[in-house]
Design a protein around this nucleic acid. Structure first.
Lengths: 182, 182, 182, 182
DNA sequence: TTTT
DNA sequence: TTTT
């Protein structure tokens, strides 16, 4: 039954890069987002404005991952509800390393694009070249499922992807289908 | 001003150990908690119950840290509201490492002890030897402020404390005092 | 599909009364909780401590409602995650009235009992007479499903139940079963 | 100190109207928002898409209220973190009525405009006539503080404003100033 | 109507 | 690496 404890993360931020989508052997999609949240405040001592940006590694699964891959782009503003998850892996020296991610679970998590397609809901069509940033992108071409799940280690400053991580780590996902509203 | 983005973590879990309290050169308290949240579910394929525990590294500041040090014990159930924060540090080989914590900020975060003092509010006095677990402890003796802030690297399974981290990392805290209700 | 917008309520509080359980014509359970959250603070002007209690009307569905009915009692501390929902109804004079509730939806919401059964996880069996308050109760006897869903209007100070409300308001619930982990 | 219990509401939605700003006798601003969150889902039985919109009454105080009054407009997308609060009032027949609001407290709550000024961050200046909807408005002219706080009962579909409510209900607000980062 |  |  259920769970003992609450593990909930709520983020609103902007993507530092286009989502990275991969496909599991069983065809399920997995998307990784690099999401920035920033705070600014006036320093009590110096009176100057200061700013600090935090980068979050977000991982999405299944349908939600596909939607992210199709509509999110570098700069997109997005709402994320997920849970904290720390994965253990070995670096090239065989040393234990840990990476903490925000996992958006199919049932309990959610992802929502913010800001509206045409900006202020004015309904005008959005033309967006690849160089343009922010907002929602046009759907990309359907991607081919790939077998090489860990082929390209993501580069991330604040919580780098392991270079040798367990292969089957997402096989335990609960089943889910289109009928579930998320 | 303020912030662009939302960075919020909500946890309810139990402490794996007594809080570790340290004091900054300016006398401000810092507490580290190791907090477990667990989920259990029935495996769709095997029909067996499965359980997974996630360990969170939580850091508290100031008054909240002192309250944690005085009243929380191994096993205590606690509510935490904080924000995700990834610190960079160098390991003994000079390699960059990252540790993600849930920081309970003086203004925006909060900590709350759950479950009541005597358990089911039956009012009976709680005697709690150091070996006993859970609930709220009696206040410990006042601790002496220490200078050696990073003296003892905490041991934590899922996100170990750096062995050589920046010394002055918490000097930017906003001022706060007893009038602020948190 | 899914949703545009976020509507999320998180409460931790104590029950002012035992849960009220009812059964829909289709056999689905519905539970109503009256949940108190309180804040206390020192008045800046007078220096006195002040306290304010807020009462929340919470409604649970299905399995979660049954668990609430079996284990929660007056005084129990509970975590609730749900969504705000304002229902319109007519009072005896035919005037429109509105009641705002926190609805714990089967998929997106959750309920969790806090504080542990025996208090500090000391494992001692809990004996709890009906007069005792707080903690988790023993399971009540299984209740008989009833047809008369709106037979007894609940009495609640802060957000009274309509005396003539729509009969079929909960028929749109998504299906759910035991496999869904909530 | 502090509080016993958690009372937290998180909303992301769009304004149904421009904010209504009023000023307390002491000069403090109070803003009321009417915020819509909507859900859509496919009906399991009919296969049709269905949608339900929930309207939330949000109240902001002080600086946050002023920012809302200056930058938010009908259609604006906004993030709200506040707490549930039910106010009692008497209708014209002297009957007790209750209104539930989401109050964004100066210290614990927050408000954040979403979606960026020019929509997809394309940098083009936004011209917005009063009829245009969504996005962030240009700052309005500074308003004159008014004494007649309850002069105009707001019109809101789901939780109408009382027609005769307590006059001094917001006098208990904690002091706050510009140094506090929210 | 709860709890501390 | 984002955004303002």
């Amino acid at each position: 039954m259920a769970s003992r404890g609450i593990n909930k993360v709520i983020l609103i931020g902007n993507l530092g890069n286009d989502p990275e989508i991969r496909y599991l052997p069983n065809g399920g999609a997995v998307a990784n987002l690099s999401l920035a949240t920033s705070e600014s405040w006036r320093d009590k001592n110096t009176g100057e404005m200061r700013e600090k940006t935090e980068w979050h590694r977000v991982v999405l699964f299944g349908k939600t991952a596909e939607v992210a891959g199709e509509y999110l782009r570098k700069g997109s503003q997005v709402y994320i509800e997920g849970q904290l998850q720390t994965r253990k892996w070995q670096d090239q020296n065989g040393q234990d390393r840990y990476t903490t991610e925000v996992a958006v679970q199919p049932f309990s998590g959610s992802m929502q694009m913010l800001g509206g397609r045409g900006g202020q809901n004015q309904g005008q069509p959005m033309q967006q070249s690849p160089q343009q940033q922010g907002g929602w992108g046009q759907p990309q071409q359907p991607k081919q499922p790939q077998q090489n799940f860990n082929q390209q280690p993501p580069q991330q400053q604040s919580a780098p992807q392991p270079q040798s991580q367990p292969q089957q780590q997402y096989n335990d996902l609960p089943d889910f289908d289109d009928d579930i509203p998320f």
